[in-house]
């Protein structure tokens, strides 16, 4: 009787996943497979639809991958992407956690938290393109708001060309990225905290835990799943970063703001139309993200749940044997 029920429910698992699978197969799978295949071919040139696999034209099957991995520009793009992501993510998560702690704390009766919560997410609703252009004007040279202030404070020194130097460019891009996304991260974290039962906090308060202790010992462990989510999505978003650096600086300042995703686009659309190399680079990017995320999942996996699963499996096996 019990066994029959389990089978019944499993059916619903499949049933409820069908819409997702169908839509995915129709709209995403074909383009993805197409890309993977192209990475091993000689397809290049605009308007060209004919291609052969590399070995059939006397080349190494992995030639495109080798070209990408040995390219100095790819190395630089890869390094830049990490640097910019890290500079943006640390304060992003830091401030998001800080605001979450402040705004969800029932003890500090801060007024207007509702307004702040709404406001802080707002930068996220403006397109990255608009944001990049506004910041470009802000840091304009020799005329721009920041340079006007610099000249006002120190007329002798003159304007500083932010967009001609490597580090200022990276810092500004990281800042814009931070500015656009800390509110988003905060909203996720707050949604996680709201999901925690109020009794847990009450119990902690009764036990005499202070604010900091409550936050680190209760809140953070409870929203671990959500934090894992923000970490993974931010990592994926960060490694795919495109709009902001592309519109803020492009390939200027000696590729100071070049990201891997921009590199991929440039392979395909900057004149030589090397679809094959672009596809190979995206496969590489894909593999890197998968590898990193798997590591993250492994480190941050829900240990209790894993144990529970094991236990259940054993139970099931035992039940089967018994049956």
């Amino acid at each position: 009787m019990r066994n029959k029920k389990i089978v019944d429910y499993a059916k619903f698992g499949y049933l409820f996943s069908i819409p997702f699978i169908l839509s995915f197969c129709i709209f995403t799978l074909y383009p993805v497979i197409y890309t993977f295949v192209i990475g091993f071919t000689n397809l290049k040139g605009a308007g060209n639809t004919e291609w052969q696999f590399l070995p059939s034209v006397g080349k190494n099957l992995f030639q495109n991958f080798i070209d990408v991995l040995t390219s100095k520009t790819f190395h630089k793009a890869f390094r830049n992407t990490w640097i910019i992501w890290i500079i943006n993510f640390i304060p992003q998560l830091g401030f998001a956690l800080l605001f979450t702690a402040w705004f969800t704390d029932k003890r500090t009766k801060v007024k207007g938290t509702g307004l702040f919560k709404i406001l802080f997410y707002m930068p996220n609703i403006i397109t990255a393109a608009t944001m990049a252009i506004l910041f470009n004007k802000l840091f304009g040279y020799p005329k721009g708001a920041i340079n006007d202030i610099i000249i006002l404070l120190n007329p002798a020194k003159g304007a500083y060309n932010f967009n001609a130097h490597e580090w200022p460019v990276k810092l500004i891009i990281a800042f814009v990225q931070f500015f656009q996304w800390y509110g988003n991260t905060m909203v996720y974290l707050i949604a996680g905290v709201i999901g925690i039962s109020p009794e847990v906090f009450e119990a902690a308060e009764i036990d005499g835990a202070n604010r900091v202790q409550t936050f680190f010992k209760i809140t953070i462990p409870c929203i671990r799943q959500i934090m894992l989510f923000t970490l993974v999505t931010s990592l994926i978003g960060g490694l795919n970063m495109f709009d902001i650096p592309q519109l803020y600086i492009g390939t200027d300042a000696n590729n100071a703001g070049l990201t891997t995703n921009m590199y991929i686009r440039n392979q395909a659309f900057s004149g030589s139309y090397m679809y094959n190399r672009s596809a190979a680079a995206s496969v590489i990017l894909f593999i890197i993200i998968v590898a990193l995320s798997s590591i993250l999942f492994y480190i941050l996996r829900d240990k209790d749940e894993a144990k529970l699963k094991k236990l259940k499996k054993q139970e099931l096996r035992a039940a089967k044997k018994g049956f």
């Binding site: 995403t28 999505t233 490694l239």
Partner: peptide, 18 residues
């Protein structure tokens, strides 16, 4: 989770052609 990691740049071209 794997699908989530596919760079969007990759799928747009194939999607448009389709």
């Amino acid at each position: 989770i794997a699908v989530m990691m596919i760079p969007t740049t990759v799928t747009t071209i194939g999607f448009y052609q389709m």
